[in-house]
Amino acid sequence: MADGAAGDSTGTTTLPLFPLQSVLLPGAHLPLHIFEPRYRQLTVDLVTGTVPDQEFGVIAMRTSLTREVTGLDQVHAIGCTTRLREAKRLPDGRFDVVTTGRQRFRLLDIDCEAAPYLVGTIEWVTDAPMPRGSAEAGQRMAEVARAAHRRYCRSAWEHDDWTEPPPDTPLADLAYQLAADCLLPLDDRQALLEQTQPLRRLRDVCRLLTREAGFLTALRAVPAPPAELTALTRPASLN
């Protein structure tokens, strides 16, 4: 899931880009409300198959002050592709869509003229091989990270608002799934996305969830339920 079959490709390729003020992690679902004309066109191209595999790249902007992405310095270097799952066209031409994060990429160049929307030249990012003899340590780290996730979710959500990743979740994907239910700052999510050592990624997510659970307990406050957070995933206007 984290790095699918296409992630085995070598060299570079191009794909449409969707800059956001948030970080998409592999395996996470991303609902979007599409209202800008250029991204309406991107959605049409995804639905009709003009864009191969109905897939585009989500890349996080470095600052919320950016209104128009034109260069690499305005976005983070590592992003995540996402595949269109559902698309509902509204009467005024806007779209409500749901996508699922797939695989990581490094953005090498941005083309602002090849299409109505941004197009990026990218190369795939894959995990480093697990060290020999690390399986047992990985399982122990997975148990610790899952326990941190449970502590966070019990502090933050009602029971019906979160679920644990399945027991057979691959070690390389587990950190992403644990982070999906949690409200982490953009920089922390970006660091998880960029980490290519699976055990370090699990260690990092364990540390982050433990920290956030401590904050929630100390402040005696909880974030809004996940069902009410859809608006946070909507893109800022880039006009």
Rank of each mutant, 00 (worst) to 15 (best):
H33I: 01
E36Q: 12
P37M: 14
R38P: 01
Y39M: 09
L42T: 03
L46Y: 00
V47K: 08
V47R: 11
G49E: 03
T50F: 01
E55T: 11
F56P: 02
G57S: 04
I59Q: 03
A60E: 01
M61D: 11
R62V: 05
T63A: 10
T63E: 04
S64D: 10
R67M: 07
R67H: 07
R67E: 04
G71C: 13
G71A: 14
L72F: 00
D73S: 11
V75P: 07
I78A: 13
G79Y: 01
G79R: 01
R83L: 09
R83G: 09
L84F: 03
L84Y: 02
E86P: 00
K88L: 13
R89H: 12
R89F: 08
P91R: 08
G93Q: 10
G93D: 11
G93L: 10
G93R: 11
F95I: 09
V97K: 01
Q103A: 09
R104P: 07
L107Q: 04
L108C: 13
I110V: 12
D111G: 01
C112T: 05
A114F: 05
V119S: 00
G120C: 12
V125K: 06
V125G: 08
T126V: 15
D127T: 06
M130D: 12
G133N: 03
A135P: 05
E136G: 13
E143W: 06
V144Y: 01
H149N: 05
